[in-house]
Design a protein around this nucleic acid. Sequence first.
DNA 1: TTCATTTGATAACAAATGTTATCGTCTACC
DNA 2: GGTAGACGATAACATTTGTTATCAAATGAA
Lengths: 191, 191
Amino acid sequence: MFNQFRNKFPLTEEKWNEYVGYFNRIEVSAKTTLLEEGEISKKLFIIEKGCIRVWFNNNGKDLTSQFFFENQSVASIESFMKKFPSPVVVETIEPSVLWWIHKENLDIIIEEIKENPELRDRLIDMLFQRTFDYMKHFFSFIKDSPAQRYLSLIQEKPQIVQRVPQHYIASYLGISTVHLSRIKSKLLQNK
Amino acid sequence: MFNQFRNKFPLTEEKWNEYVGYFNRIEVSAKTTLLEEGEISKKLFIIEKGCIRVWFNNNGKDLTSQFFFENQSVASIESFMKKFPSPVVVETIEPSVLWWIHKENLDIIIEEIKENPELRDRLIDMLFQRTFDYMKHFFSFIKDSPAQRYLSLIQEKPQIVQRVPQHYIASYLGISTVHLSRIKSKLLQNK
DNA sequence: TTCATTTGATAACAAATGTTATCGTCTACC
DNA sequence: GGTAGACGATAACATTTGTTATCAAATGAA
């Protein structure tokens, strides 16, 4: 599981084993809640197999804000970093195999990483990259129609379209389930 | 101008003066382009007086993605960090007094800051905060109607509503100028 | 298997939003 | 002071999108 990260992080064998030892493996069924709304996030998850969505309740409606797949890390990032009650729920979509690490242990790793200029820059790059991703997503809401956003999703994140139930995708695109269904049928007509 | 930052950054007098010396003051009129589309961003601006918008051209339409006011720093962040051609234009809205620093000099400052654990954490906090802001903005597109987004804007960023021409605000909210005008007149009726 | 639940398509109608055009006001500039 | 352009309101109409309801297919649990 962690070999994918192994070559990216120039650490000694001992350090590496220490860090890996902080992680715990779990297997959960579909629709398992990993973090409740209002709870303070203390675990970061890495997905070995499966997929996860992050959603929040808005006037009784279930709105999905993010999807995660294999090899990605997941947390209610604001709750995890700032110890706020989480505004969102973290929940599996498929039966999943996950590794989690407690925040206290991750903080130890991060503090040590920050002392290493190369790793530190990689960390900062990751933060920038995340910001760029959100920017891009926001841009799509002011420049594209829902149909265009759906086409971009197919292009850029095909996993979402292939593996996620459609009604979750609808709220992610900011539209109703009925409208997404209409967009799909119109796309089929034009072929 | 820089005194607002002075107490936040525990630097020696010499360092402080060295850093401040990297900045250049300019005065520009309204609608001055500070960065063209396709240009590689090499300057970071700090606003002493005035306001700036970041926009991009989408099929001939001028879409505004960000606004900046006094004491904020502005650049095409992706172009500035990664040396990509900028997808956006940076332009003043009002006549403005700005300070700019060349990327090479800012890099010197940042490298030195990273060696200081306290300042480094502050830098990382700023990156997180920026990400949270974009997340929040994105959330508003999947949960709020345009009218609600406009009300939130009045609450949370009153400067925008007070100082920015309305047609720029419309594209920032992802709606047409006509629709924003309608939202405003409907709000007046209901009082 | 059987049955309840989830998921998705579709129709009919209502509401929201965009487009185009026109008009009035204000502002900057000569 | 006059004039062109920027800005914003509004009307009329077209289009998009949401809502509610119904049905069918797929899925999962007993």
